[in-house]
Nucleic acid binder design. Sequence first.
DNA 1: CAGAGGATAAGCT
DNA 2: GCTTATCCTCTGT
Length: 208
Amino acid sequence: MLSFLKDPTLTTEQVAKELLGCLLVKEDEIGITSGWIVETEAYVGVQDEACHSYNGKRTPRLESMYKKAGTLYVYQMHTHHMVNIVTRTSDEPQAVLIRAIEPYEGVSIFEEHRKRKGIELTNGPGKLTKAMGITMEDNGTESDKYPLYIASQKKRVPNLIQKSKRIGIPNKGHWTDALLRYSVEGNPYVSRRKGKPMNDHGWEAMIH
DNA sequence: CAGAGGATAAGCT
DNA sequence: GCTTATCCTCTGT
């Protein structure tokens, strides 16, 4: 388990930033796929009108959000899956949505799942789950365990973390404008980005 | 049982 | 660039 996921002094916003550069890995019978997290969004619990657990809402679908920090919360929206990492304690159902990754291992498997190439493989929350084969079977599992986990041995460091409004949160008062979306500035896999990506993809040197 | 929601892809302009 | 179909889960009528 990554140490920052079990640190009760960190806010969900801080965890969302810490997750940038972490390696998300899926291991199954098909093979190993992995990618560096380049975009996250913080959903800060019962007071956050954009959060599923807003106002203490609790349904069978949301049960994973009420589990311990580090639990994976996967849900389906329209025909797509979204993957989140639960933060803090069971009393505070908060989570970080993983919105985009930069492919690292298993690119050919990504291409097979997505029927596409390049940045289209993983530049969106529904795209990366399809690329890695993440399904409801991964819901409620822990993020330090097979088959879907965050590697603790490898991490990259963003040169600059860009803050912006969360995607798709209209008519939610100040929550609509809250800067709770974090991305690696200049990384080509960040969703809905414009302009030229940076040559180094926005990373400092890799740490092993 | 209609409607909305943390989205995507295809098709059009 | 914008519009539309997609067809899961939950809520409110």
